[in-house]
């Protein structure tokens, strides 16, 4: 059922994202073309500067639109699909409640990654007429050279950073899901309660995080002072990354369970 839910989730959301990505990349291409024309013909075409300016503004606006819409669609879709009239269909499908949360989360994460990828792609498109294959070749060659030289620790760092970024994203999305779901427990003033939960839980989360960091740094220094020479071991950095991973993993699980529980036990569709 997860696969089917995700299929329809992608179908519903791609109606927004695909045209937006298309327009964004088109603006990047046009900007690159105008830039190239400017380099070729200089100021002999009077309309060129104006066209480049308009396209540049459009590119900037579309960049903001892509980033904003990535967040808006993720949360609006969750709210509309589960707590408004659309919920009459969603909640009567023979699917476990937590599967709805999983499907929406995974699809939102994919769109976040896609939006970032499209941004990098747009940068590539902007420089399409100035690509220097030799430079890219060098970067690639360096990368290939690095692989045999790198040890398990380098890979561990990469993996830890990747996991941390992913979990940070997941935790953030689930946090907002939980606030939206909690707001809908209220008979009235749903938005106010949702915002209240968001701010209140956000403050608690930050305090817990700061406490964790303080305790972590303090104990690291306590251990470090016993090390005889300044060898700068890498384990404190691993400790920091792994500590963060555990923190975001734990709170992701808490928000996921709370959201699913509210949807199952406290649902009150108007």
């Amino acid at each position: 059922m997860l696969r089917k839910l995700m299929k329809y989730e992608f179908r519903a959301t791609s109606r927004t994202f695909l045209p937006l990505y298309g327009a964004f990349l088109l603006a990047a291409l046009l900007l690159a073309v105008f830039d190239q024309m400017h380099q070729t013909w200089g100021n002999s075409l009077p309309w060129l500067d104006a066209a480049a300016l308009v396209t540049g503004i459009a590119y900037g606006i579309l960049f903001i639109a892509v980033m904003v819409m990535t967040a808006v669609v993720a949360f609006q879709r969750f709210y509309r699909n589960l707590f408004t009239d659309e919920g009459y269909l969603t909640h009567t499908l023979p699917v476990k409640t937590h599967t709805h949360v999983t499907a929406k989360l995974l699809v939102s994460v994919v769109w976040c990654i896609a939006s970032i990828a499209v941004f990098f792609l747009s940068v590539l498109v902007l420089s399409i007429f100035n690509l220097q294959p030799a430079a890219y070749g060098e970067i690639f060659a360096d990368l290939v050279k690095w692989i045999p030289e790198s040890n398990w620790e380098s890979w561990a760092f990469l993996l830890e950073i990747f996991l941390l970024v992913l979990l940070y994203l997941v935790c953030g999305i689930l946090f907002v899901y939980m606030a939206i779901a909690a707001g809908n427990i209220a008979g009235r003033h749903k938005v106010a309660l949702g915002i209240g939960v968001f701010i209140g839980a956000g403050i608690i989360l930050q305090l817990v995080y700061l406490l964790g960091i303080t305790v972590g740094v303090r104990s690291t220094f306590d251990l470090w002072k016993d090390i005889p020479d300044y060898t700068f071991p890498s384990w404190p950095l691993h400790g920091f990354l792994l500590g963060n991973i555990v923190f975001f993993l734990f709170f992701s699980a808490v928000f996921y369970i709370l959201t699913s529980w509210i949807l199952k036990r406290k649902l009150n569709l108007a």
Binding site: D85, T92, P94
Partner: peptide, 29 residues
């Protein structure tokens, strides 16, 4: 939910979907 077929008193289907897509949707779930 596998054995109950429910018709709410409101328009609850995604109105951007075509009739054919809705039939497929119901068939899928």
């Amino acid at each position: 939910k596998k054995i109950v077929s429910y018709l709410p008193d409101k328009n609850y289907l995604n109105d951007w979907m075509s009739v054919r897509q809705l039939i497929r949707f119901f068939g899928d779930f």
